[in-house]
Amino acid sequence: MTISHTRIARFGALVAASVSLLTACSADTDTPEANHGPAAESVTISDAWVKAADEGMSAAFGELHNSGESDVTVVSATTAAADMIELHETVENETGAMIMREIEGGFVIPASGALALEPGADHIMLMGLTGALAAGQEISFTLTFSDDSVYEFTAPVKDYAGANETYEDHSDHAAETEAE
């Protein structure tokens, strides 16, 4: 792989990220029309990974890409690794602190764009882990879109010290994920 190739690929990513931001700022977040084909056919994920954890909670990250001409919406996710999954966003609460909470309406991946799932931003939240997530394991996920089509991917588990976010104070999960 040459450097120029790498730079071109990166440039593409940069443009994609910019497009993502621009689209996210626009008001148009309609779900795709049926005549554009199932959402799952235009979606891929790259650089997916899951934070290692012994028990309790964890989170999955990666970059969702939409090659289609319409926005697509992820409405839910499932995995055998956790009893419950929520799609989370980061927002500022009334005290000015950044908190994580379930996103209303799901993740919107803009047409010909991308959505980054990252620590401190949007992410897939795993609650009630069914077993330890050990580094190097591969975890399968299934995303369901607003048109009921589904997309399956696997993500490796990695040790990661960050992603210890504060969540909205619900009774059903603690204020912070476990660091290890």
């Binding site: 690929a9 990166r10 593409g12 940069l14 891929t44 650089d47 970059e63 980054a116 990252e118």
Partner: peptide
């Protein structure tokens, strides 16, 4: 492959 490294952080 070509998609590796794409992400806001890498950007």
């Amino acid at each position: 492959g070509a998609l590796a490294g794409i992400g806001a952080t890498t950007a």
